[in-house]
Design a protein around this nucleic acid. Structure first.
Lengths: 323, 323
DNA sequence: ATATTATCAAAAATTTTGATTGATTTTTTA
DNA sequence: TAAAAAATCAATCAAAATTTTTGATAATAT
């Protein structure tokens, strides 16, 4: 690669003015520097780019061919410099975000879409996996930031508390237990349970907790997907226990009902995780503060992010605060 | 305009290798020059482009944002240089050609050797992969041209039809079915099938097609390599279905026989793919026209490229036409 | 006669190198 | 298994090499 950007710039100036001297003035160089740069280019490209008509330099076919490319390339580099070097300017960048399954499927899509709506030049790549995988990829540096349930294992990672998730026991609204007020664990003895299969963190926590109260606790049906479980519960096949984040929309619409049982009020902390030694770019800092804002709002208003619409409401609020 | 093309090149090398030292080797600079160039860029762009993890340099969001632009710009300038600096006369250059497995193993070697025989100063690097990989590398600009079976996914790529491939059902010549004239699908009910294992495009197409006619279609033996399958069929272990390109030599020599079954006449289009915005150098243009010539000849004469010798015959014909 | 381009050697700026330092990773040893 | 030693790597600095730019001059066109 022998051509330089400088040469392309000089070429543009000459092509556009048609004169070496005026081009030199335009880009604050001496006439001699411009002349030499052009002949160097013609050397590199193995042939002339201009027809010399007396004192004028007029593009020949090769020069005409080069012109649009030179323009495009120079413009592109200028744009990039502007975008990346302006610290106060518009936010740009490619952020790699990871989230565990529940967060990744039920929360992050809204967060990501709201954030990119505010910062259209930002591209966010959302990776969904289990908490272990996400943590590992954050540690490796593949991901800039991760959102997980549960604990952090690596000592290279720092975490901060994000939203609090609640495990809800859900039932079809026509279910007999929904009619009763003041439920207790003992009302659940004869219930049929529909749960995620072995390996789900949510299911495990719930089984451990309820086993303390109900000795012969047994799962009636195991399903592989959260959505399938909700459908089964809606259909009245039994009860289940799922993250509030995954069921709040159905609850709002009255398709499912939550059974409040004092002994089984299980909450768990969602965490934001980042490598300790990670240098926070503007973009990353901004994204974190955006997430923290969402956290504050959710805590204050007990709102659950059931729709992009709700998040947008929060955002307007955010805008006001910024202004 | 502070950034230079050199810096972008260096940035690419570091981003792609993840290390300063290996990047330096790749572009024939010292470790120190590379290190300084990167920090100079980070200066110009007012912030880091990499996370330093011990000895590794991993792109951060700003670096990832820059990467595709850097690639594009560097590629563009390289293309322009190549194109404009190419002298008339003897063809020279390094062509990067990719081909999917069948084409790459059974067709391209002949094409490449014939082409370089005509143009001894040309070096061709032939990469074999699956169609997906080849397409991606053509899109990235790693490959100048690709040859694939199946469809193009990227909208940055233009394709043109090349040879037509046929799936042939093959049998040992002593196989009872070879004695019969006028075969139909129903004659295959009791056949033993030897196929490529799960994941082979060819095997998949065939299974889908024959399942329409034979309900309990079952594979008797799965093997990992095309050559192994041919050997097994030659040994009389059963029938198989393979691309005509891979079996035509054995068929010509009488080691295998093709069973023609009207319902199972499966053909598929082989494609030549190139980035839409690729500047075609003399070399690339010449290579494409060479491939098109081969296509025309194969269509006209129903010849299958079973040997370098046959291709040479075609070439003599080509020479005549040129002269 | 004036203005302009091309060319040359000298000056200025920049890129690259070689050597060194400090950190991290891998291998060896206890 | 843990500690010590060796090897590897990135960053930094000053010197060297290279490239770019200048100032002066010759050649050419209006």
């Amino acid at each position: 690669m022998a051509l330089t950007l400088r040469q392309l710039e000089i070429f543009l100036a000459v092509a556009e003015t048609g004169h070496v001297t005026s081009a030199a003035k335009r880009i604050h160089l001496t006439q001699s520097a411009v002349s030499m740069a052009i002949s160097e280019m013609e050397n590199i490209l193995n042939g002339p780019l201009f027809d010399r008509q007396g004192k004028k330099l007029i593009l020949n076919d090769r020069g005409r061919f080069l012109l649009p490319y030179a323009r495009e390339i120079v413009n592109k580099v200028r744009n990039i410099e502007l975008l990346l070097s302006e610290p106060e300017g518009e936010l740009v960048g490619h952020l790699h975000v990871g989230a565990s399954s529940t967060i990744g499927n039920y929360v992050m899509p809204y967060v990501v879409s709201a954030f990119t709506r505010e910062h259209p030049k930002v591209y966010i790549n959302l990776v969904v996996g289990n908490s272990r995988q996400i943590e590992q990829q954050v540690e490796e540096g593949v991901l800039d930031i991760g959102f997980i349930e549960g604990l952090v294992h690596s000592n290279k990672i720092e975490s901060q508390e994000w939203l609090t998730d609640r495990l809800n026991i859900i039932a079809n609204p026509q279910h007999p237990l929904c009619q009763k007020k003041e439920l207790s664990v003992h009302d659940l003895v004869d219930a049929r349970w529909i749960m995620r299969e072995e390996g789900s963190g949510t299911a495990e926590i719930f089984k451990n907790t309820i086993s303390k109260y109900i000795s012969n606790f047994e799962v009636f049906l195991e399903l592989g997907h959260t959505e399938a479980i909700k459908k089964a519960v809606e259909a009245g096949m039994g009860l289940s226990c799922l993250s509030a984040l995954t069921v709040c929309r159905e609850v709002e619409n009255g398709w499912l009902k939550i059974l409040h049982i004092p002994e089984l009020e299980i909450t768990r902390q969602l965490l934001i995780i980042i490598r300790k030694d990670k240098l926070k770019t503007n973009l990353l800092r901004e994204f974190i503060s955006f997430c923290n804002f969402i956290k504050d709002c959710c805590q204050a208003s007990e709102i659950c992010l059931t729709s992009p619409y709700k998040l947008l409401q929060l955002l307007e609020h955010h805008q006001e605060m910024v202004v």
